[in-house]
């Protein structure tokens, strides 16, 4: 009885692992495959052609650059805007905080495609389509609520007594800020940076409504290649894209509570 249960559990976990890993594995295999037709477990020939293609024709380098520029802009703007707002929410008495939270979280609760139409409409008029700033601004809509949420929960956790103690000991305002507050909130800010980065880096819906030939990001490129190219090349590009995502994954696991990625739904 005990053994059957153990075996059951192990089989389940094994199946689950296969369920999750295989799609990635098959992408990597496809990206090296040549002549993989009909019913075969593995391709007949192996080749580097598709990677060659990804860099030479699909311009993965330039696109990676675009993605990083846009992500950097989105992180910068979200943090800059989010810091003061998060501080106010966390440390100042505000009537109706619940409602405020709901308003801030609303962009994440309503499907992005709905307001993406409006954003692209407005951006067309402002000539923000196909600019890094424009795409990054669109991403801010999704990144900002996240940033505010994480930052405000960090600021809430800040112990007022520590700040007061510093002041009592005669530290100036700046000194308190740099030597007491900053080290305490740094992990929170880093968490916010990492999560806004993932949001922006993976964002597709808002990007496809605001991108142009000069601001193709990685997800959009993947879409274009899947929809209008070869799946072998798409797999090669995807395999390249997996690397930064895996780095982020490891960073999240090592340094942060993964639960934070889904963000507490305090507003509800």
């Amino acid at each position: 009885m005990r053994y059957t249960k153990k075996i059951l559990i192990i089989t389940f976990l094994l199946c689950f692992a296969i369920f999750i890993i295989s799609p990635f594995l098959i992408i990597v295999v496809t990206s090296f495959a040549k002549g993989w037709f009909g019913k075969q477990w593995l391709p007949q020939e192996w080749t580097f052609d598709w990677y060659h293609w990804a860099f030479q024709v699909a311009n993965v380098g330039a696109i990676l650059k675009n993605s990083l520029i846009i992500a950097a802009l989105a992180i910068g703007m979200s943090l800059f805007i989010g810091l003061s707002t998060a501080w106010a929410i966390a440390r100042r008495p505000i009537p109706g905080k619940e409602i405020l939270y709901s308003i801030i979280l609303l962009p994440r609760m309503i499907p992005p495609i709905t307001y993406a139409l409006g954003i692209s409409n407005i951006f067309y008029r402002l000539n923000l389509i196909d600019t890094h700033l424009g795409v990054a601004l669109a991403h801010v809509t999704l990144c900002l609520p996240f940033g505010i949420l994480i930052l405000s929960s960090t600021f809430e956790g800040l112990d007022q007594r520590l700040i007061e103690a510093a002041e009592v000991c005669g530290a100036s305002r700046w000194r308190t800020f740099f030597h007491v507050i900053l080290p305490l909130v740094m992990p929170g800010i880093l968490a916010a940076i990492i999560f806004t980065f993932t949001t922006s880096y993976n964002e597709f819906t808002l990007t496809i409504m605001t991108y142009g030939p000069h601001t193709v990001t990685l997800p959009v490129k993947t879409y274009l290649v899947i929809g209008d190219g070869y799946w072998e090349v798409a797999s090669a590009i995807s395999s390249i894209l997996l690397i930064p995502s895996l780095i982020v994954l490891i960073v999240i696991l090592r340094s942060l509570k993964p639960e934070k990625i889904v963000g507490g739904f305090k507003g509800i």
Binding site: F24, I27, N202, F204, L218, T222, Y223, S238, L242, L246
Partner: peptide
């Protein structure tokens, strides 16, 4: 296994879809 569970979140949805 916890890492595995995080993978679909951290990796762009389109890549997952292709896979």
């Amino acid at each position: 296994f916890k890492t595995l569970i995080l993978a679909p979140i951290a990796i762009p949805g389109l890549i997952c879809a292709l896979g």
